[in-house]
Every structure is written in structure tokens, then in C-alpha cells.
Amino acid sequence: MASSYSRRRTPSPLPGLFVFLVSAGSLGFAFYAQYVQKFLPCILCLYQRVPYYSATGLAIISLLLIRQPGLSRGMIYLCGLAFAIGAGIAFYHVGVQELWWDGPEMCGGLTSGASNVADLKAQLLAQPIVRCDKIEWKLFGITMPTVNLFFSIVMAVFCFLAPRSSMMRTTGQN
């Protein structure tokens, strides 16, 4: 019995789709907290969103390049790098909140384009000051930057491991 067995490698869009949904969902939650729940973000909170913007875009590119497995996998690895950077930003923010170190000068401050003292005073009175070391939200004693730290680490690990195991699945044909 001679059978011809050939293997063909076909790309799977699941890692890119998962990263896209998680990133877009995380940004959606951040916007919900900001605009619906009225939790004003500090500058470090805004910085923590940048990796999610990046991962969302890279995941879309990964899905568009699904027929080019090497490039598609590369985009997911870049998502992992974005999440690793996000974990670093989140760790820094946790340290600021826990008073382990000082935050950047912009924390709680206002970058002004005022041309005179009256304009600066008007800007200062109109803008709420959001300090980076102020804890705005907690769940079971866990702050949002702490949640983001662990979430970013998990997503980074997923993005570094997923391309090896699920970007390519082998299908046999008889």
C-alpha cells in the first residue's frame, strides 16, 4: 500500500485576531473609564496606552499579511515587544504610585502654550490636575497600573510563544 502523504503548512490568523481583540478591547475599556466613568488619566496612564495602539495596528498588519507567514509572525513578535515595553511603563507607574520613586515632571503638571500669565492662569484653572501617584481606582487592593503590568507581561509572553505553535498548522493530505 503506497500512499502519498504530503504536508502543507497553512497560516492561522488566530494569534493576530486574538492580539487585535485584546488590544482594541483594552483601549475600549480605557476610553470607557475615562469618558463614561470620568476617571481622568495621568500622563503615565496615557503612555501605557501607546503599546496597545501599536499592538492593534501590528495585529491588523499581521492579519493582512497572513499569506506571508514569516511577515505575519514578525508582526506578532513586534506586538510582544510592544507589550514588553508596556510592562516596563506599567512597572514604572506602579513604582510612582507606591512612592518607590518620583514620577516625571509632567505628572500632575500642565504643558502650557500660554503666551502670558493671564492665559496660563486660565489654563490652570480650566484643567484638572491628575497626579501620577494618586490612585484613582482599586479592585481588591490592586490598581490599574498593576493590572496592566501583569496583563502586559502575559500578552508579551503570548506574542513571543504563539507564532511558534499556532501561526502555522500542518495539514496532511492523502
Rank of each mutant, 00 (worst) to 15 (best):
Q127C: 14
S62W: 04
P15N: 03
L40K: 14
L64H: 00
F150W: 15
S166H: 08
G70M: 11
A118L: 10
A87W: 01
Q173C: 05
A30W: 13
F39G: 07
F158Q: 03
D102I: 03
I76Y: 07
F18N: 05
N148Y: 14
A84L: 13
G74Y: 10
K138F: 02
T143Y: 05
G109T: 00
A30S: 15
S26Y: 13
A30Q: 13
G141R: 07
I153Y: 01
V36F: 14
E98W: 07
E98P: 03
Q37C: 11
G16C: 04
P15W: 03
T171G: 07
L120R: 07
S23Q: 05
L65Y: 02
I60Y: 00
T170C: 06
F39V: 14
S12W: 03
P128M: 09
F29M: 14
Q34G: 12
R9M: 12
C79F: 09
G108V: 04
T171H: 10
S62F: 07
G86S: 05
G141E: 05
G25N: 01
K38G: 06
T143C: 08
H93S: 14
M168G: 06
L124W: 13
T111E: 09
L27G: 02
S26W: 13
K38H: 13
G103E: 05
A30Y: 15
V147Y: 13
T170S: 11
M155L: 15
F158H: 01
A55R: 01
F83L: 04
Y35M: 12
V50A: 13
Q48Y: 01
P104E: 08
V96C: 05
S152A: 15
L110T: 03
T10F: 11
F151M: 13
V147S: 08
N174I: 07
M1S: 11
L99R: 15
Y5Q: 09
A162Q: 02
P69H: 09
Q34R: 14
G95R: 00
